[in-house]
Simulated scan of single mutants.
Amino acid sequence: MHGFRNDTDDPTSFLILYTPGIARVKFFAEIADLANGGRTLQGHARTALYARHDQVMVDD
Rank of each mutant, 00 (worst) to 15 (best):
T8K: 10
D9V: 14
D33L: 09
D33H: 08
G21W: 05
A51D: 15
P20N: 08
H53R: 04
D54T: 05
I31S: 11
A32T: 03
Y50E: 08
I16K: 12
D7N: 14
D10C: 11
H53N: 11
L41V: 06
A48K: 06
M57Y: 01
A35V: 11
A48S: 09
A51Y: 10
M57A: 10
F28R: 01
Y50D: 08
N6A: 15
D10K: 13
H53A: 02
G38T: 01
L17Y: 13
R39Y: 07
P11G: 15
T40R: 03
I22P: 01
D54Y: 04
V25W: 03
D7I: 06
T47W: 09
D59N: 00
D7V: 06
P11A: 13
Y50C: 12
L17G: 15
T8N: 14
I22R: 11
T19D: 08
P20W: 08
R46V: 07
D60L: 03
A23W: 02
H44M: 11
G37H: 05
L49M: 13
Q42M: 00
L41F: 00
T8F: 14
E30K: 07
D54L: 08
G43S: 02
D59E: 03
H2F: 11
R24K: 08
T8A: 15
G21A: 09
A48C: 00
R39H: 00
G21N: 03
Q55Y: 12
R46Y: 13
S13F: 13
N36I: 01
T19G: 06
T19W: 10
G38D: 00
R5A: 15
R52I: 05
T19F: 04
D33K: 03
R46A: 05
Q42E: 07
A23K: 06
R5V: 09
Y18K: 07
F4E: 12
D9R: 15
G38Q: 02
D60H: 00
G38P: 00
P20G: 04
A45F: 09
P11E: 12
F14D: 00
N6T: 12
G21F: 04
R5M: 03
R46L: 14
T19M: 04
Q55S: 13
D10Y: 10
D59W: 05
G3R: 01
L15N: 04
H2Y: 14
L49H: 02
G21Y: 05
G43C: 00
D10M: 11
D59L: 05
V56N: 08
T40K: 05
D33C: 07
M1E: 15
D54K: 09
V56D: 15
R5H: 10
F14V: 01
Y18E: 09
L41M: 03
I22V: 13
L41N: 01
R52L: 03
G3K: 05
A32W: 12
Q42G: 01
D7S: 02
R39Q: 14
H44G: 01
R39C: 06
